[in-house]
Write a protein that binds this DNA or RNA. Structure first.
Length: 485
RNA sequence: GGCGGCAUAGCCAAGUGGUAAGGCAGGGGACUGCAAAUCCUUUAUCCGGCGGUUCGAAUCCGCCUGCCGCCUCCA
């Protein structure tokens, strides 16, 4: 049974989608004003894993993500880069899509942007005004929080307390300090604005998510995700707008929030200027390692990013990957013998208990940290088995290890790691290459048998120079094309 | 000032009532021509502090201390 922590209730709840077998999922994307940073990518990886897991469990998931492509920041950044806001947004949207492709993120079923949905937003703002939830003031339109009794239910606040403690300068044209903009008047002559019944301007930030979630997923959705820093006011305001306009509640059944990435104890963010972009980290480490680093912690917790910890993650992840590769090498080989006295049947139980433990962890609010711990236990068992002195490759051991390999591939796939096995699509050229490498290694084995270590070592070194890493094992040499790790 | 969260070994990190997963680093072995990898073993009588509830708490309650997030743009 899958349980998820719902910010709305503050508890873990059993996950049951609104419509059986289907999951409608909306995740706040980013303001496309710059390259994505590690904090963004953590969020993306997190919901990628959640989505993959839901799909693995058989749900038909429809996943939508937005881009905020117009606001004051975009305009400011566009000036800096001397281009139009739309050009800037396009540039960084494209960069983002490149980043997530490198990260092996499954693409959303739909991406949406604010600027192509202005009409729908205006429509919703009009409805809110008709229903008395919103008012116009000097060309701006605000949502009136006092008209929405549930305001604060997500973030656990109430209007009176907030009002008392407010330290923010309040715009005088608001009826209540917490009222937020649905439509903003913009008088900048150099910037493209949109016409509206209230004059030229552009939409407030929050309305785009209500509008687009409603448009693509309907008025009630199963999962809405984002960073903890969006709980208030962004998601609180989304609830207010959507429930007030569509009249259905709850707008979102499960609110999921991921923790932020910190640097030296402070939140990594563009406004603080303390961030590492996704691409600069990916220039140093593979996507798998960054992903591993991110999911060894529970997704709610804040995570301190550092290259020291990335180095540890690299070593730790490679253990898992090496085991997967070693097992694969064995299952690909022709058995030495048809049978032997080596006892392996009991290992099937270990495969089963691993499976059980792994999925129990994932069912517990997507506890990837625990799941990875179980994975390490399992790879340890496998290594212990295949490295034991009397291990032999027989039909039987191969059969059992094939099961283990399949299990490993399944969980690595769920967690979104690259599976790396591209054997199926090997071209003729690749096959020829493989045959040549096998041939070279056969010659090297001959040299080794003759204890011609200098020749054997220089062959290994030369191959390594060409990106082919050779490893001598008790079952003979293995090789692989070096990845960028 | 308000709301919320966190505090587990040298580091990272699971664990929400039954007696401390996992990874990194370190110690000791093994395997090995070398390299790479791997295995075994070891490292918290204790979970920020003080009280309380309980047969029993890192886990529940109270107080205290420290750190962080949000309340302004933010994944």
């Amino acid at each position: 049974m899958l349980q998820v922590y719902n910010t709305l209730s503050g508890k873990k709840e059993e996950f049951t989608p609104i419509e059986e077998g289907k999951v409608r999922m909306y995740v706040c994307g980013l303001t496309v004003q710059n390259y994505s940073h590690v904090g963004h990518i953590r969020s993306v990886v997190n919901y990628d894993v959640i989505r993959r897991y839901l799909e693995y469990k058989g749900y038909d998931v429809y996943f939508v993500q937005n881009f905020t492509d117009i606001n004051e920041k975009i305009v400011a950044r566009a000036r800096e880069e001397e281009m139009s806001p739309s050009e800037l947004a396009e540039k960084y949207t494209r960069a983002y899509l490149e980043d997530i492709a490198r990260m092996n993120i499954k693409t959303a079923d739909a991406y949406c942007t604010a600027t192509v949905n202005i009409e729908q937003m205006i429509n919703i703002i009009e409805q809110l005004m008709e229903r008395g939830y919103a008012y116009e003031s000097e060309g701006n339109v605000y949502f009136s929080v006092e008209k929405f009794p549930d305001y604060g239910k997500l973030s656990g606040r109430n209007i009176e307390e907030m009002d008392a403690g407010s330290r923010v300068n309040v715009k005088e044209d608001k009826k209540h300090p917490l009222d937020f903009a649905l439509w903003k008047k913009v008088k900048d002559d150099d910037v493209k604005v949109w016409d509206s019944p209230w004059g030229p301007g552009w939409p407030g930030w929050h309305i785009e998510c209500s509008t687009m979630a409603g448009k693509f997923l309907g008025h009630k959705i199963d999962i809405h995700g984002g960073g903890t820093d969006l709980i208030f006011p962004h998601h609180e305001n989304e609830i207010a707008q959507s429930e007030a306009c569509f009249g259905e509640k709850p707008f979102v059944k499960y609110w999921l929030h991921n923790g932020t990435i910190d640097l030296s104890g402070e939140k990594m963010s563009k406004s603080l200027g303390n961030f590492y972009t996704t691409r600069e980290v990916l220039d140093k480490y593979s996507a798998d390692i960054l992903r591993y680093f991110l999911i060894t912690k529970h997704y709610h917790s804040p995570v301190e990013f550092s290259y020291e910890e990335m180095d540890k993650a690299e070593i730790s992840f490679k253990k898992i990957r090496n085991t997967r590769n070693d097992v694969h090498q064995i299952t690909e080989q022709i058995p030495d013998k048809s049978d032997s006295s080596f006892e392996i049947k009991s290992f099937l139980n270990k495969i089963d208990s691993f499976e059980e433990a792994f999925f129990a962890a994932m069912d517990d609010d997507f506890n990837t940290a625990r799941a990875l711990g179980e994975l390490h236990n399992f790879t340890g068992e496998i290594n212990s088995l295949i490295n034991s002195p009397d291990f032999q490759i027989t039909e039987e051991t191969r059969f059992v290890l094939k099961k283990a390999e399949d299990k490993l591939n399944t969980v690595l796939e769920i967690l979104g790691f690259s599976t790396g096995q591209k054997k199926a699509a090997a071209s003729e050229q690749e096959q020829l290459n493989e045959e040549l490498i096998s041939y070279i290694l056969d010659l090297r084995e001959q040299a080794r048998r003759e204890e011609n270590w200098s020749l054997a070592d220089s062959i290994r070194e030369d191959l390594s120079q060409r990106g082919i890493k050779v490893k001598d094992t008790s079952h003979g040499p293995t090789w692989k094309i070096e990845d960028d790790e």
